[in-house]
């Protein structure tokens, strides 16, 4: 699963440049409203619908990519 792909979604939604694989979305300035926009992009790009709690427990590109892989 593409950690880079998820990192790219983080960067676009947060309007920041490169996002590291282990960077925490909420530390980077994300909030629940923006988290939903990551999840809609994940659904679009990977065909996986995650919940807000899934995201809250996996708030880094690496963790979220693993989460996506586990439910695919």
């Amino acid at each position: 699963m593409s950690v880079e792909g998820v990192a790219h979604i983080f960067g676009r939604v947060l309007e920041v440049g490169d996002v590291q694989a282990d960077a925490d979305f909420f530390v980077l300035g994300g909030d629940s409203l923006l988290a939903t926009r990551v999840l809609s992009a994940v659904a679009r790009d990977y065909g996986v619908e995650l919940t807000f709690d899934d995201f809250a427990f996996s708030p880094t590109p690496a963790a979220l990519a693993a989460r996506i892989a586990s439910v695919r």
């Binding site: 923006l34 988290a35 939903t36 926009r37 999840l39 809609s40 992009a41 659904a43 919940t51 807000f52």
Partner: peptide, 14 residues
């Protein structure tokens, strides 16, 4: 955060 479908809310906010 309301207990609603997060992807659906994400599409709204998009």
């Amino acid at each position: 955060f309301p207990p609603l479908n997060a992807v659906a809310l994400g599409e709204l906010f998009d």
